[in-house]
Nucleic acid binder design. Structure first.
Length: 310
DNA sequence: TCCCAGGATCAAG
DNA sequence: CTTGATCATGGG
């Protein structure tokens, strides 16, 4: 629900929170698997997050261009909670990748012909970061062999049926993403009937049970090397190279991860291998070797470029 | 009806 | 180490 203007607070995000150009709309609507897509109301986007122990419902809107803009934020908190604007600003800077040095990125690869073609139309597109490793892993699993629209609607059904409901001071409410415990106790068939997630339910339940039973810890995957983290993830049922890379990139913040899906497979083969068909793992490896720290960003740009029809 | 969607798994070659 | 069938499900 749209945030009630009379019962909420509003501020403008200081320019120095943003490092370079920014396009909020492209960023939020680019199907990144860190979390379900924020809800759109006109020019603003709404989401709920737990920040410093307080549930915060906020909307963000950008006016202007990718280079000259103002970012307005409106927010309110959950029951008996309070949040400082500084904390909220830092949170937004993190989830929207506002600290990433996009100007440096564009400059570094300005001579990389196929890639640099995307810099114009996608100027200001940023890499989002999830705030929940579990949520990011589940969203990544849901995305396999699925459309962005569908995995998002399935994630919303998960929240609606199994997530806790939080009420806000303006009378509105929001369903949180479920915890591992909430999903661990379900049987696969029930999950399929409630969410229509299909065969992915087996993986979702299995992973949730492992986490709930302390057989799997996601937190350590943030700080170990990319290779070590990948090895752990690939042992999980229903988690292959692409899902693992999605989680590592959008969830764990391992920026050298470059998920290769059907779109990436097509666009990289076309742009970099002149149509010769290379395997998906080979393409992912190629992107990591060639772009290093920026491989995840390169993937984001090429994916969005390919998906928006050239 | 067939094909596709931010694929993974398993068996067979 | 590669290829092909299969896996649920909804939309085009």
């Amino acid at each position: 629900m749209r945030i009630d203007a009379a019962r909420s607070k509003e501020f403008t995000l200081d320019v120095d929170y943003v490092n370079g150009p920014l396009n909020v709309e492209d960023t939020i609507l680019s199907a990144q698997t860190s979390e379900p897509e924020w809800i759109r109301y006109g020019q603003s986007f709404v989401d709920v997050e737990k920040i410093s122990g307080t549930y915060v419902k906020y909307s963000i809107a950008q006016r202007g261009t990718s280079d000259q803009f103002t970012i307005s934020v409106r927010y309110l908190t959950g029951p008996n909670g309070e949040i400082s604007q500084t904390k909220l600003k830092q949170h937004l800077a993190n989830v929207l990748g506002l600290r990433d040095d996009l100007s440096l990125f564009y400059e570094m690869f300005s001579a990389d012909k196929p890639l640099s073609l995307t810099f114009g139309p996608l100027r200001g597109l940023r890499l989002m970061r999830g705030t929940s490793l579990y949520e990011s892993l589940i969203c990544s699993i849901l995305s396999q062999n699925n459309s962005a629209i569908r995995w998002n609607s399935i994630a919303r059904l998960l929240m609606k049926h199994y997530g806790r409901k939080v009420r806000f001071s303006d009378g509105s409410s929001w369903f949180l993403f479920p915890r591992p415990k909430d999903i661990a106790e379900l049987n696969v068939r029930e999950l399929q009937l409630k969410t229509s997630m299909g065969y992915r339910a087996k993986s979702v339940v299995t992973v949730s049970r492992m986490i709930h039973n302390n057989e799997l810890e996601l937190e350590p995957l943030v700080n170990v090397s990319y290779e070590e983290a990948l090895e752990v993830l690939l042992q999980l049922y229903g988690v292959g190279p692409k899902v693992a890379d999605c989680f590592l990139l959008y969830g764990a913040g391992q920026l050298k991860a470059a998920p290769v899906d059907v779109w990436m497979y097509r666009i990289v083969n076309r742009l970099y291998f002149k149509g010769r068909k290379s395997s998906r793992p080979a393409i992912a490896s190629f992107l990591r070797d060639r772009f290093g720290y920026w491989a995840g960003y390169v993937q984001l740009y090429l994916f969005h470029y390919a998906r928006s029809g050239l």
